[in-house]
Nucleic acid binder design. Structure first.
Lengths: 155, 155
DNA sequence: CGCCATTAGTTGGTTTGGCAACTAATATTG
DNA sequence: CAATATTAGTTGCCAAACCAACTAATGGCG
């Protein structure tokens, strides 16, 4: 008697719905981690991601940053300009192709990077310590598989 | 020789960083799924989530919706008003406590709900069919454990 | 060379999210 | 029962995301 039965009346249990749980989890984690650098360095998640890629791959173009991070190019453009103004990045125009420009962390940018990276790893570690090593690996593998699979789905 | 060694120079590998991968995966999945209802019904993800909770728990207050969905109350207030205007929801003020109001899906809202729910389940199914049954269960368990653990971390 | 397509990046306009201050109603407490 | 605190919900304001249109440069091809 919990439910009127007009036809079959399927109910969606949001709290058991995996895409929803994934979203809540992911947002929570992103916010937790960004709290560790956003107040000290006034960096948004997007800005930090840009710096992170440039720490890993110096001298790539905005377009390549976009490919690596999935950040949409207009968002990227504005974020990069903000970081340039703050002198955390520098941009060098390509003489051969004047559309392109290579980006890299400045000395200041690099010092921020060097400070944030270990904290990020510590946080990842702290998050994952609810898993055994085997579970960590499995979780990672499942995430990757699901991601690759999601890329193949229509939408 | 992969790494320059100024001091220790730790590098963050974004594409192996779990919080990042989780975020990319989750956004991709949310966008895939919302594509199935957003064009037909012009519902945002937030709006759909509100309708989903009200389909599961009719006659709860905005505040209770907020607790169940983690949607912040100002966002909720605006989304609810939009759904009220579209007559997908109706609101009934509580005579005993005139601050509170009970929300429920209208007949139209319910018909939208009944149309979207099966599609959502189908999509979840399609996503998870890259996993075996055991993997599905394990993934679900790991997500839950990680979430509960994340709730205990400072931030 | 001259035309069209493509690519890199920017800008405009709109939507969404999020914090904080606010209103109004109810609960608490001295 | 008056003063204060708490709760439900709204509003203002600003940051972040997104899409589409745009500029400018290069590439491809007749």
């Amino acid at each position: 008697m919990e439910q009127e039965d007009k036809t079959i009346a399927p109910v969606l249990q949001l709290e058991r719905y995996l895409p929803y749980r994934l979203s809540i989890l992911s947002n929570r984690i992103s916010n937790l981690i960004s709290a560790t650098y956003s107040s000290k360095f006034a960096l948004s998640i997007t800005e930090w991601r840009i710096m992170a890629v440039l720490g890993e791959y110096p001298d790539i173009s905005a377009d390549q940053v976009s490919n690596k991070t999935q950040i949409e190019k207009s968002i990227l453009s504005r974020a990069i300009n903000k970081l340039l103004q703050r002198q955390l990045l520098l941009r060098e125009f390509d003489a051969a192709d004047r559309r392109r420009s290579m980006l890299r962390l400045t000395a200041t940018g690099l010092s921020v990077y060097r400070e944030v990276v270990p904290v990020s790893y510590d946080y990842e570690e702290a998050l994952l310590n609810c898993f055994s090593d085997a579970e960590k690996e499995q979780f990672s593998e499942l995430i990757d598989r699901l991601y690759r699979h999601a890329l193949t789905l229509p939408g």
